[in-house]
Design a protein around this nucleic acid. Structure first.
Lengths: 250, 250
DNA sequence: ATGGCTCATTGACCCTAGTCAATCCACCGG
DNA sequence: CCGGTGGATTGACTAGGGTCAATGAGCCAT
């Protein structure tokens, strides 16, 4: 079985349109419902606008749009990016199903980055003022939100270390294992998966040139660490990929 | 008047020991009290443990300590840093008076980084469970906290761009102007100030070698952009320092 | 099919910033 | 007073990864 077939196989889920509440959503164990009691889930359910669809390349919101809601990714994948004064794009994050995007706008009341679909995607919209009201009434939900934002800060700190101290090899390896772990969280394989983003987005996110990304993918394959076929990736030797052997030797 | 004298001059404030409540704190307009009505300030006041003192080099908390509180810096300055598996330090942030440190631990219930005093400092301790309870009752406080964390995320995104796309010159220039702006927020000069951190910390934070930081400080001075004398800095030509002229020319 | 896209790969060359090393300075303890 | 220690500066050399350029591969509209 080649990589493409293997990946297609694990994506046979019930059609999205059939899900009309968080109760029935396959992501409920990693998404917001995680934080509320079953009897309070209805309240959360009622404020969520479900199933907004985005085509590849479409924007969920743009920088300077007024901040109204945060979004739970239900299917597909998004990237967020900011524009510097001189017009160059900085990809700031990738968001996979079950993850929450849009929390950057809270302090300014408008978004400071843009969110764009990397492929056909659906999101659930959670109006933020409603969410705040509800959070006051449901302490676990408030805590979960603090927690989500805190985790985002933690991840940014890890990225800070990656960008400031690690080689290009380490950055790519880290991206691959991070994506793999997030796949696993959703119940998919952490060994074989499809990258939703282009080499350009990877390079931009990791502070590298596209050519460098390409070269490293090729070399990792030659070294037997991974198998790559366009955007499909299989991790062959996780220990060496994670460092023990790539960093300090071969 | 030399740099040292100029800086000493603007630090004549009332002694810290005299301040027994947020009401009397000179930082109340940029710190937590900002978010609550005067009549509710008492409630906030009551949960805050004030005036914990730290000597230079002392830790406020260490990675893996259980997460109990967040802290408002009252005087002095702190740095936060994380340790990678291979034992190298990564400075993740600097915290000046009026700023909140320690929000990284919420999601894990233990701190993932350590916080250390860069100089003699005092902090106000805000037990987090109390803060959560209070936030449920005071919507503006809840919002303020979401907002604070959101701002932290925004700043991390800006740093991401800095590390991934900008030259060493840009990074140093950005650090200087950021510190200057934060000084101004506290009512101090945004032109002339003392850096609380060593060249090593700056280098570590910005992903550079100490030697590079040193060289750039020297060159910026030769170019007439700044005046440096150890940790004392005066910004002489903000426009060129900020880019228009340094980036695209001279 | 054909042309025009964008994405990806590979090679050749170069430059920015890291490394190594020496020196200087301020501060501290005896 | 002197030696020790850590921070800062400067010089010489080097390498990791960026830039430029060419080519290939997949995809869509015509």
């Amino acid at each position: 079985m080649n990589i493409r077939m293997a990946i297609a196989h694990q994506h046979r889920e019930t059609p999205l349109a059939a899900r009309v509440s968080c109760n029935d959503c396959s992501l409920s164990q990693i998404c917001l419902p995680l934080a509320v009691d079953p009897e309070q889930l209805d309240e959360l359910d009622r404020i969520i606008r479900r199933g907004r669809a985005l085509k590849r390349g479409e924007h969920l919101y743009r920088a300077a749009d007024s901040f109204e809601a945060v979004y739970a990714v239900r299917s597909g994948a998004l990237k967020t990016y900011a524009m510097s004064e001189d017009g160059e794009e900085q990809v700031t994050g990738f968001y996979l199903p079950g993850e929450i995007v849009g929390m950057d706008g809270i302090s300014t009341a408008y978004h400071i980055s843009s969110a764009k679909a990397l492929e056909t995607s659906t999101v659930c919209e959670i109006p933020f003022t409603h969410l705040e009201t509800l959070s006051s009434r449901i302490p676990t939900l408030q805590h979960h939100f603090f927690s989500l934002m805190s985790r985002e800060i933690q991840e940014d700190r890890a990225l800070h270390m990656l960008l400031s101290k690690k080689s290009a090899d380490d950055r790519i390896a880290s991206l691959l294992t991070t994506i793999a772990a997030r796949q696993q969280r959703r119940g998919l394989s952490n060994r074989i998966f499809r990258l939703p983003m282009s080499r350009y987005d990877i390079a931009n996110y990791l502070g590298l040139a596209v050519e460098t990304v390409s070269r490293i993918f090729t070399r990792f394959q030659q070294q037997g660490l991974i198998r790559v076929e366009g955007r499909e990736v299989e991790i062959l030797d996780r220990p060496r990929l994670c460092g023990e052997g790539r960093l300090h030797a071969g």
